[in-house]
């Protein structure tokens, strides 16, 4: 069983919901990325989404845009990000790591070379925001051969036929975008989530994580009622941005523990 499947199976057995933090690799600087990943795992993260910085993050709000800019200002490339995962795997063989980012860094590296490097580094899943399933069949094939999950998004605007289509390609878990907007927006609609997730479940038999717009323990707890996992990105990235460098790890850990606590209450 893959690390991602094993993680969700264990969560289901304990009747717990997953907590998936997102950070951008290389933010605030490359030296802190691996320590941050360990801190996330230690504070109760069930899976880590590691952002690959890109110069043109079209689906992201200002907070994650700025984190990409900080990471790129240190020269963080896809090769470096894969290196962070290898480093993390030296002492953590348990927490799944999913790379999340945009198509072009992968296009530049080449599908097969990327898939192979991801396998060697210990990457468990890949979510490319601007590769919808129909444009990523070839990459998905390379990933599948190496038992790496190709993870896809669904949105409030995804129709039933679209959900059915995505179901054919989705592996690992489904990332449900909770709102019409970019990451970090603040108008999450619980009613819509409550309505949409059962519809998704009739077509897709994978765990469902919900992200975009979840900013505190209470919202995480509310969202977790309908989903299998909660994804928190912009709020953590904001904590990284606002903390003095020496406090980044402690502040992020405290925030994740706080959210974990609210979800497990």
């Amino acid at each position: 069983m893959s690390r991602i499947a094993a993680t969700f199976a264990a969560l289901a057995e304990r009747k717990r919901k997953g907590l998936i933090p997102f950070i951008t690799a290389g933010d605030p600087d490359p030296e802190l990325t691996v320590p941050l990943m360990h801190a996330l795992a230690g504070a109760g993260a069930d899976l880590i989404e590691l952002g690959v910085p890109f110069s043109d993050p079209m689906a992201d709000g200002p907070t994650i845009q700025r984190s990409s800019e900080r990471a790129l200002s240190h020269g963080t490339s896809l090769v470096h990000v894969l290196g962070f995962v290898s480093e993390f795997r030296k002492t953590n063989g348990r927490t799944p790591v999913v790379l999340m980012g945009y198509a072009n860094p992968i296009e530049a590296m080449g599908y097969e070379r990327f898939a192979e490097a991801a396998r060697v580094s210990g990457v468990d899943g890949v979510l490319v925001v601007d590769y919808p399933p129909e444009e990523s069949a070839q990459l998905s094939e390379f990933l599948e051969k190496r038992e790496i999950d190709a993870i896809f998004l669904l949105a409030p605007t995804s129709s039933a036929s679209r959900i059915e289509k995505v179901a054919r390609y989705a592996r690992g878990y489904v990332y449900y975008v909770s709102l019409r907007g970019v990451t970090g927006a603040a108008h999450l609609d619980l009613g819509e989530i409550a309505h949409k997730i059962p519809l998704i479940r009739t077509h897709i038999h994978l765990p469902i994580g919900v992200g975009f717009g979840i900013r505190d323990g209470q919202t995480a707890r509310d969202v977790a009622k309908f989903s299998d996992a909660v994804i928190i990105g912009s709020r953590l990235v904001q904590e990284i941005e606002e903390s003095p460098r020496s406090r980044v790890i402690d502040n992020v850990s405290a925030l994740v523990r706080d959210i974990r606590g609210a979800m497990d209450k």
């Binding site: 689906a59 605007t157 995505v166």
Partner: peptide
């Protein structure tokens, strides 16, 4: 069509 799912519809 290389866009996020949010724009597909």
């Amino acid at each position: 069509v290389f866009v996020a799912e949010t724009l597909i519809d």
